[in-house]
Design a protein around this nucleic acid. Sequence first.
DNA 1: TGTGTTCTTTTTGTCGACAAGAAAAATACA
DNA 2: TGTATTTTTCTTGTCGACAAAAAGAACACA
Lengths: 234, 234
Amino acid sequence: MRDIDPGSHPERKRGSGVKMVYDLLRDEILDLKLAPGSPIDEVQLAERFKMSRTPIREALVRLAGDGLIETLPNRSTMVSNIDFLNLSTFFDALVLMYRVTTRLAAQNHRPEDLPSIRRFHEDYSAAIEARDTLAMIATNAAFHAAIAEAGRNPYFTGLFRRLLDEGRRILRLYYQSYDELFPRQFVDEHAEIIAAIEARDVEEADRLGKVHAEQIVAQVQKLFSRNGKLDIAL
Amino acid sequence: MRDIDPGSHPERKRGSGVKMVYDLLRDEILDLKLAPGSPIDEVQLAERFKMSRTPIREALVRLAGDGLIETLPNRSTMVSNIDFLNLSTFFDALVLMYRVTTRLAAQNHRPEDLPSIRRFHEDYSAAIEARDTLAMIATNAAFHAAIAEAGRNPYFTGLFRRLLDEGRRILRLYYQSYDELFPRQFVDEHAEIIAAIEARDVEEADRLGKVHAEQIVAQVQKLFSRNGKLDIAL
DNA sequence: TGTGTTCTTTTTGTCGACAAGAAAAATACA
DNA sequence: TGTATTTTTCTTGTCGACAAAAAGAACACA
């Protein structure tokens, strides 16, 4: 026989709390719902999620490991700033990882990888139709992350995910002022990339990845030059 | 006026505990003093370091973020295994990062970067003279990490450090059975690399980085084929 | 008014204790 | 003896409370 205690309301499984807090804060940071530099209060989060500070703290430690928040010892913890001064290093890494992951996907993908890649491709297309900026950014990142997974090199995938994350924040920043920036052209390029991967045309995949990446970088840099004030704004 | 409580013995500054545990465990894992797959007990560590489980736990979360340990929910946590089946993905990433970081160092280094690079170069040379295996592995990694720093791309540096860490474990494994493996030749190659960086010869640095990396990979792979049993041994 | 010092407040870091889960041990039963 | 079930044990995940740092407020004094 088993006694049931109706008094206590855990309401959630033991260990799911950390992941929930981590995922939610992560999304809020990447969607700029939490502005770079804004403070993070443990007690406040504990109240919000109705749990003690311990699991909150663990989620924060993990976010710090991802570089999404920064902790000053004994003092406040805050959302990491976007480093506008070193954007070129970010672009360098991004372009290389676009190339490498697309190339490896053409080389190493398995048939079962393609459906999920295609699905994100369609999601991205739908987001553009719907003019849903946040969805566009997120599905674009998911599309390329799926390609990277098909490449089956966890080291590259790890770095690439991190770069795509940072890219989400940067793109979100510019989309606030400019609309219709991701042209439909990107949808076609995505289709070309899928075709090259499926055909296992490694060199073509590499080339397309490079072109695609450089086009995105050029877009963002163009916006940069249009209103150079932005790097001071945040 | 201030009362002094002679009873409590903190014996260490507030917040230094986590870093100490993290650094120590990290070194023990990378030097294979903690074997891959061996269990990690929080309570045991708490006793060993004379602190509560909370800071121990934080250090473990960070190590898990680095991929050095793995945690099964509600169950044990253990030192990450070395993935011998996917060594080729590791080598792919390692070679590319050797190339990229050396190339960027030739491009972006500042005069003040060279002294520390040279120092690690000498340390490495001294470690070979002294036949100190652990020191050879560690200083070699430090040498290339310093070059990567001079390249000034934190994204590449981050991935490269992770790869060099993993490399420390793999090399340590082979050095247990084979001596005099890192030939003196590597010292000369390091010197060539330094020269190319200092001359800002980007293409040459790239080429040397690639050759150097592929030589190391070939060495390890040769050992692999000699005694193919090792991948089952651990 | 300006400056240096002491108190107060706020937030983090650490602790000991307890409860939930899962494996291991013990037990019941055929 | 072999298998299913209960009990025990052991480890982790979570909690509430307290202590240490650092910032800010209040105060003294020139």
